[in-house]
Design a binder for these strands. Structure first.
Lengths: 159, 159
DNA sequence: TATTGTTATACTCTATAACTATA
DNA sequence: TATAGTTATAGAGTATAACAATA
């Protein structure tokens, strides 16, 4: 120790650059800075696009709960997003015949057209990232991220 | 091709699981789910904590612009956060003598005490993650994230 | 004139609770 | 009673523009 603390002494702590949360935040922001303009051009937010993608990727209608799970959105957020997408006629809701509480969601014709138009641009941007960073390297990185996520979910510190 | 498209055909696209943005989003969320409760216990948001940390890590007062750069917060967001932290007497502002537009920010005594109290808990959580995932492995992951971020910043597609 | 920082606005998302309607 | 989904609220971040004070 080199003397008592004064109000101008820095508190020893892990620096931002070496911090996992900051590294993740910045990588995510840098990545979205690539994709956001592409979907923003079509007046879609990132979350709206996630919903459209989930519906586009399914070969059958999905109920709200399923979409929430697949897009990692909370039900209230999703409700608002669905209302917005429906008001723009990008999706359709059909009450399930067996359970009237459920509504089945599908892309409308316009929704499908929009996804068909955006998807290639998005894929191209993705491929550019893969090429720049290295395809295998990127897959390795994603694999590590997934494992970290899984690990953190397992070890959920319950209070 | 196996026939014309019908409204129930899925559009071929990169699945969510293999998607870099989703992998980053989930890893970040899983990570913050560890740290958020620790700082939330002291009624701090993630961004407020970033500001306190930046001030704590510095051995001299910082002006608003510098804090914005180090915490990756936009000026308007930071202004609101600073007002909040000041109202809780966790930070102090002192007008710079040389340039009256600038105000120098420092932690108050209470702010330092708070950081001193939270930091060890936060470090312990961090160490637990390191142990679970592997210290070297985690450092490698962070290094790859940093390089990805740098790459994406270089190739900033300017309009 | 240019810069530092704050305020004003307009959207969005997160998160929790309360509520409706079906089962 | 339990479940699916919506609505209500409260709070916070992002982003851009406009503005005040100072250089």
């Amino acid at each position: 120790m080199s003397g008592r603390a004064t109000s101008s002494d820095a508190i020893a702590m892990r620096p931002f650059e070496a911090s996992l949360p900051m590294a993740l935040l910045q990588a995510r922001e840098a990545t979205m800075r690539v994709f956001r303009p592409l979907i923003g051009e079509h007046d879609l937010t990132e979350q709206q696009w996630r919903v459209l993608r989930a519906l586009a990727a399914s070969d059958e209608p999905l109920d709200v709960g399923t979409v929430a799970a697949r897009t990692f959105l909370l039900a209230p957020s999703l409700s608002r997003i669905l209302a917005k997408l429906e008001s723009r006629s990008l999706i359709e809701r059909h009450l399930a015949t067996d359970d009237q509480r459920r509504s089945n969601l599908v892309l409308s014709r316009a929704g499908r057209d929009l996804v068909q138009r955006v998807a290639p641009v998005s894929e191209a941007a993705y491929n550019a990232i893969e090429e720049g960073f290295g395809t295998n390297r990127l897959h390795t990185l994603i694999g590590e991220l997934d494992e970290l996520t899984a690990l953190l979910h397992e070890t959920g510190t319950e209070p």
